[in-house]
C-alpha cells in the first residue's frame, strides 16, 4: 500500500485495513457494505449479519469511482470474499453518487448518525464529525435517528483541510499536530481569524515574531476548537457526546473542545473515520432485509 515515502507530504496519515478473524462470513445470511467516499479519505466497511467484519481506510484519489473500488478491494483483501458475495452496498460521503456498485446513495448525516449509534451504543446523543472538508454536528435519538443536524462544508476553517494548511506551513506531519500543540506551558491567545487564508497570514506573522511552532499550533487548535463549539451550540450538546472523523484523532483539538464544553467525549473503540461507512453498511443491511421481506 501507499507508504509514507515522500517526507514532504505532511498531510499523509497512515492508511489501514482491519478484519475480525473470528467471524466466518460464509455462515452469514446478509453481507452488507457501506462505502464512504469523502473528499480526503475513503472507507469501506463490511458487516456480516450486522456484525463488524472488516474495514479499510485510505486516501481518496482524484477519481471517485476508482477510490470506491480501491477501498472495497482493500477491505476484501485476505477475506476470500468477492464482490459477488455481497448482498447490498450503500454509498455515502461527498462522492456517494459515484460509487459504481452501490444500490443506493445515502447522505453522510444519516450514515454518521447511524454509525455513531453502533460505535458508541444507544446512549450517544450528540456527534461531532470533523472530516477532511466539512464539519457536521448531529443530535441523534437512542435508535440512531437524526433529531437535528448542521453541516458546514462551505468553509475550510474547522476541517481537516484547514489543519493541513497549518501542518504544511509549519512543515510538520498532520498526525503530530495534536501532541505538539499540547507541549505549551500555558495556552496562548487563539488565532483570531476564522478564515484559513487570513489565519495562515496571522500564523506566519507569529512565527516571524519568534513564536515556537508548538505555540502557534496551540493557538490554532484553540481557535478550531472554539469555532466548532460555537457551531455545536446551535444544536445544543447533550451527553453522551462523541467526536468522529479525522480530527477526532487530533488530541490537541479534541481536548480543547472538551475543555470548552466542560464535557468529555466518549473514547472511541473503533477507528472514528469509519463512522460514515459503518452507518452506510447498517442501512444496507436494513434495506436488504426490507427487500427480502417484500419478496
Amino acid at each position: 500500500m501507499a507508504e509514507d515515502t515522500n517526507s514532504k507530504e505532511y498531510w499523509r496519515w497512515t492508511e489501514s485495513n482491519w478484519r475480525d478473524p473470528d467471524i466466518d462470513w460464509k455462515a452469514g445470511e446478509i453481507i452488507s457494505v457501506g462505502i464512504d467516499v469523502g473528499s480526503v479519505s475513503s472507507q469501506a466497511v463490511i458487516l456480516v449479519d450486522g456484525k463488524l467484519y472488516a474495514y479499510s481506510n485510505m486516501r481518496t484519489g482524484s477519481d471517485s469511482p476508482k477510490s470506491a473500488e480501491n477501498a472495497m478491494d482493500w477491505a476484501l483483501e485476505g477475506t476470500g470474499m468477492t464482490q459477488d458475495d455481497i448482498h447490498y452496498v450503500v454509498g455515502t460521503g461527498y462522492g456517494r453518487v459515484n460509487v459504481p456498485f452501490a444500490k443506493r446513495a445515502i447522505t453522510e448525516i444519516a450514515c454518521h448518525a447511524r454509525g455513531a449509534n453502533f460505535m458508541y451504543g444507544p446512549t450517544i446523543k450528540t456527534v461531532l464529525d470533523m472530516g477532511g472538508q466539512d464539519c457536521k454536528a448531529i443530535r441523534v435519538d437512542q435508535k440512531g435517528k437524526v433529531v437535528a443536524f448542521l453541516m458546514n462544508d462551505k468553509c475550510a476553517a474547522g476541517t481537516g483541510r484547514g489543519m493541513e494548511v497549518f501542518a504544511n506551513l509549519l512543515g510538520i506531519h498532520i498526525t503530530e499536530v495534536g501532541e505538539m500543540s499540547l507541549r505549551v506551558e500555558e495556552e496562548p491567545p487563539m488565532v483570531s481569524s476564522t478564515c484559513v487564508v487570513f489565519a495562515k497570514s496571522e500564523a506566519s506573522g507569529l512565527l516571524r515574531e519568534g513564536w515556537p511552532k508548538e505555540k502557534v499550533l496551540a493557538a490554532y487548535c484553540l481557535a478550531m476548537a472554539h469555532r466548532v463549539v460555537d457551531l455545536l451550540e446551535r444544536l445544543g450538546v447533550e451527553e453522551d457526546f462523541a467526536i468522529t472523523g479525522g480530527i477526532g484523532k487530533n488530541v490537541g483539538v479534541v481536548s480543547r473542545i472538551e475543555k470548552e464544553l466542560g464535557i468529555k467525549a466518549l473514547k472511541p473503540t473503533l477507528d472514528t473515520q469509519i463512522a460514515g461507512a459503518l452507518g452506510g453498511a447498517l442501512f444496507a443491511r436494513a434495506l436488504e432485509q426490507k427487500g427480502r421481506k417484500s419478496k
Binding site: 437535528a148 448542521l150 453541516m151 458546514n152 462551505k154 468553509c155 476553517a157 476564522t194 469555532r227 460555537d230
Partner: peptide
C-alpha cells in the same frame, strides 16, 4: 431541525 448553510469568517 435541519440546519442548512454555514459559518465562515
Amino acid at each position: 431541525k435541519a440546519n442548512y448553510g454555514y459559518k465562515d469568517g
